[in-house]
Design a protein around this nucleic acid. Structure first.
Length: 584
RNA sequence: GCCCCUGUGGCGCAAUGGUAGCGCAUUCGAUUUGUAAUCGAAAGGUUAGGGGUUCGAGUCCCCUCUGGGGCUCCA
């Protein structure tokens, strides 16, 4: 949630942002300058500043190498040290076309700029680029800069257009800020859920199984079942009905739902069973609709909320898979709400409240909310769209939730609210989503009997809060860097006997804790205590209990916490109370 | 799917075209330890897979697959 942080700080942040924006934009120009000096045949694409850096795209005969990057950076530093002023000039279309006659991508950009807009160029040294600006005054106003990596990128993001070579870099107002940023990138790498997932034994993927298909290991499995238990419990409390549905369904079902029409490229090839085609499910909605349709519904039953932890399979192109964040088989915490028009707003509000309650419980505080409105191509009546969109809007507003508006960004079947969570690398991942659907109720001819006896069409809302358990788990791992809060830690307590003669007492402590519902392990390897502590720390176990002669004699334990080290001696009972209060 | 990079014991890495090594982890033995790494030994690899060049390939070339950084799309 974006809360008000006070205007002073905001002003400062804005000014820094503007400064960085300008300096990065200018750095992109200086980079293009360097590239053209080294590779005169290069054709320039675009070179904008981004959230934390800048890039520039080039069409070059040979892709850049890491060595090229070093050379380019050297040349850039030279330009920066030469104090070259940035000069803005306005010019006519014809002048611009002449100037960029051998730069086809620039010509394309010029063509695309509306006639009413003034064209401008920025120059430094011998380099000139078509550009709106603004820029820093002088090349020396880029105190700290570094090129980061090379990647392919389609011209205008369109895969039917040529692939250009993109160079990413970043720039900051001083060396310290740059180093902080690089340090942050390293920290993000350390938090990478793929690394932590392996080190903590949470999950894995295998060449033998196939890309984008995850196996959850015992420790990941405990975490998942804790998440699922919490999810079920809170959903029951919020009036949801929890259901189960199969993984495949006949082609008829998917034809009726329309998925074979508009979602086929994400669905796997059908399998034939008794002369009928069956498809692996990419979504749960048709099954929930069949549950709805298996009886007549009175207005008294609405709203009807049907939820499921439903595992779906979607084809993802081979280059897009990413750890747990983007996979081919995943479990959605899906639900469908069937309701009457006058219930829409409170239902949407209820979903939002539930969403933030759940996300908060997992420790998430920073979200990015967006409302997506009606696209050009859509189904359903305009009045329904307007009603739905305004109810989404007012549900957000009445809760004081700041949000972006993605005009025309809704699905063809309804407007939606998306909520994104940031991962360790500041990439945003969509988890929660609330979507209206004006398509499926029509296609499946859903009705309810209203108080006046008439059959009416219910509103249908899709919603997911965690999104997919896989992705949510990935974000959770990075959020905590593997040091999960006590209630989620796969192993909550490791008991460390000092010598063999303490095993029996350790087992009695273990039993006491287990009987109170805690997950406990005893490390009875023939290792030194320090080694056992080290391993438990690296496994991010919240509590370690050191047990030796002193403890055994006094029937106590010596507790150590993952965060604050030695907590001293206490009774098992005290430890239990301490942990219980930490959990609730 | 596309562009680039990558692939060596479970993990992290090494090996000018000439005998595949090291650390961690594992197993066994010794040690019985007081708040982040005890010592020793053993075991573990057709260098992702397939083809080619070469007297000789982990190393060079081609194909396939995995993984990574992006583009596009999305939970």
């Amino acid at each position: 949630m974006m809360l008000d942080h006070g205007t002073l700080e905001q002003d400062h942040n804005n000014q820094t942002d503007i400064l960085r924006h300008k300096m990065r934009h200018s750095a992109a120009h200086i980079m293009a300058d360097a590239v053209l000096q080294l590779f005169p045949q290069a054709k320039m694409g675009i070179g904008p500043p981004t959230q934390d850096g800048f890039y520039y795209d080039f069409d070059v005969p040979q892709p850049f190498t890491p060595d090229d990057l070093i050379q380019i950076e050297e040349l850039m530093n030279k330009t920066i040290s030469q104090n070259q002023p940035f000069i803005r000039k306005e010019l006519t279309r014809d002048e611009a076309k002449l100037l960029f006659a051998d730069q086809p991508y620039k010509l394309e950009i010029i063509e695309a700029i509306p006639d009413a807009e003034t064209l401008s160029i920025y120059s430094h040294g011998n380099f000139t680029d078509l550009c709106q600006g603004p820029h820093v005054e002088n090349s020396s106003d880029i105190p700290a800069m570094k090129l980061l990596n090379i990647a392919g990128a389609y011209w205008r993001g369109d895969e039917s257009r040529p692939m250009l070579q993109r160079i990413y870099g970043t720039a900051f107002e001083n060396q310290e800020a740059l180093e902080d940023h690089l340090e942050k990138l390293e920290e993000a790498l350390r938090r990478d859920h793929r690394t932590i997932g392996r080190d903590l034994g949470l999950f894995s993927a295998h060449e033998e199984i196939g890309p984008g298909l995850i196996v959850w290991h015992p420790k990941g499995g405990i975490l998942r079942s804790l998440i699922e238990d919490y999810w079920r419990d809170i959903h029951y409390r919020h009036g949801y009905n929890i259901v189960y549905s199969p993984h495949i369904g006949k082609s008829n079902l998917w034809e009726t739902s329309g998925h074979l029409g508009f979602y086929k490229e994400n669905m796997y090839a059908p399998m034939e069973i008794d002369d009928q085609e069956y498809f692996l499910k990419p979504m749960n909605c048709p099954f929930h609709i069949m549950i709805y349709r298996s009886g007549l519904h009175s207005y008294r039953e609405l709203p009807l909320r049907i939820g499921e932890l439903g595992t779906v399979y979607r084809y993802e192109r081979s280059g897009v898979m990413h750890g747990l964040m983007r996979v081919r088989g995943f479990t959605q915490d899906d639900a469908h709400i069937f309701c009457m028009p006058d219930q829409v707003e409170s239902e949407v509000g209820g979903v939002l409240d539930l969403t933030f309650e759940i996300l908060n419980a997992f420790g998430f505080k920073d979200y990015q909310i967006s409302l997506s409105t009606r696209p050009e191509k859509y189904v359903g009546e305009l009045s329904l769209w307007d009603h739905a969109t305004s109810s989404l809007e007012s549900a957000l507003q009445s809760r004081g939730l700041e949000h972006d508006i993605d005009e025309g960004g809704g699905a063809f079947y309804g407007p939606k609210i998306d909520i994104k969570i940031k991962d360790a690398l500041d990439r945003e991942w969509q988890c929660s989503t609330v979507q209206f659907d004006f398509n499926l109720p029509e296609r499946f001819d859903l009705t309810f009997q209203d108080s006046d006896g008439e059959r009416r069409r219910p509103y249908m809302v899709h919603r997911a809060i965690l999104g997919s358990l896989e992705r949510f788990f990935g974000v959770l791992i990075e959020h905590y860097a593997g040091a999960f809060p006590l209630w989620l830690a796969p192993n909550q307590v490791t008991i460390i006997p000092i010598a063999d003669r303490h095993y029996d007492y350790c087992e009695s402590v273990r039993d006491t804790l287990s009987n109170s519902g805690f997950r406990v392990e005893i490390d009875n390897r023939g290792e030194r205590m320090n080694q056992k502590i080290r391993q438990a720390q690296m496994q991010k176990v919240p509590y370690m209990l050191v047990i030796g002669d002193r403890e055994q004699e006094n029937q106590m334990i010596s507790a150590r916490s993952r965060e604050s080290g030695d907590l001293g001696s206490m009774s098992v009972h005290d430890l239990i109370s301490k942990m219980q209060s930490e959990i609730k």
